[in-house]
Simulated assay, not measured.
Amino acid sequence: MSALHIPSRPGSRILDLAAYLPEQVLTNDELAALYPDWPAEKILDKTGIGVRHVAAPGQTAGDLAYEAARNLFAQGQVAPAHVDFIILCTQAPDYVLPTTACVLQHRLGIATSAGAFDINLGCSGFVYGLSVAKGLVETGAARCVLLLTADTYSRYIHPQDKSVRTLFGDGAAATAIVADDGAPSIGPFVFGTDGSGAGNLIVPAGGFRRPGDADSAVERTDGSGNVRTDEHLYMNGAEVMAFSLREVPKAVDALLDKAGRTKDDIGLFVLHQANKFMLEALRKRLKVPEEKLPVCVRDWGNTVSSSIPLALIGLRNAGRLPAGTTTMLVGFGVGYSWAACLVNF
Rank of each mutant, 00 (worst) to 15 (best):
residue 154 S to I: 05
residue 154 S to F: 06
residue 154 S to P: 06
residue 154 S to D: 04
residue 154 S to N: 10
residue 154 S to R: 05
residue 155 R to N: 13
residue 155 R to L: 14
residue 156 Y to W: 14
residue 156 Y to M: 15
residue 157 I to A: 07
residue 158 H to C: 08
residue 158 H to L: 11
residue 158 H to Y: 10
residue 158 H to W: 08
residue 159 P to G: 11
residue 160 Q to G: 02
residue 161 D to V: 07
residue 161 D to A: 12
residue 162 K to M: 05
residue 162 K to W: 13
residue 162 K to D: 07
residue 162 K to L: 10
residue 163 S to Y: 09
residue 163 S to G: 11
residue 163 S to M: 04
residue 164 V to W: 07
residue 164 V to D: 07
residue 164 V to M: 11
residue 164 V to P: 10
residue 165 R to W: 07
residue 165 R to M: 09
residue 165 R to I: 12
residue 166 T to Y: 06
residue 166 T to R: 15
residue 166 T to E: 14
residue 167 L to G: 12
residue 168 F to R: 06
residue 168 F to V: 12
residue 168 F to M: 12
residue 169 G to T: 10
residue 169 G to Q: 02
residue 169 G to F: 05
residue 170 D to S: 02
residue 171 G to M: 04
residue 173 A to H: 01
residue 173 A to W: 00
residue 173 A to P: 00
residue 174 A to D: 01
residue 174 A to L: 02
residue 175 T to S: 07
residue 175 T to E: 00
residue 175 T to R: 00
residue 175 T to L: 00
residue 176 A to P: 03
residue 176 A to D: 02
residue 178 V to M: 07
residue 178 V to H: 03
residue 179 A to F: 06
residue 179 A to Y: 08
residue 179 A to M: 09
residue 180 D to Y: 12
residue 180 D to G: 12
residue 180 D to S: 15
residue 180 D to A: 15
residue 181 D to M: 11
residue 182 G to C: 05
residue 182 G to Q: 11
residue 183 A to T: 14
residue 183 A to M: 12
residue 183 A to F: 02
residue 183 A to V: 12
residue 183 A to E: 15
residue 184 P to A: 13
residue 184 P to L: 07
residue 184 P to M: 10
residue 186 I to N: 01
residue 187 G to C: 11
residue 187 G to M: 05
residue 187 G to L: 11
residue 188 P to E: 01
residue 188 P to H: 09
residue 189 F to R: 05
residue 190 V to P: 04
residue 190 V to S: 01
residue 190 V to I: 14
residue 190 V to W: 00
residue 190 V to F: 04
residue 191 F to N: 03
residue 191 F to K: 02
residue 191 F to E: 04
residue 192 G to S: 14
residue 192 G to W: 13
residue 192 G to F: 05
residue 193 T to V: 15
residue 193 T to D: 06
residue 193 T to Q: 14
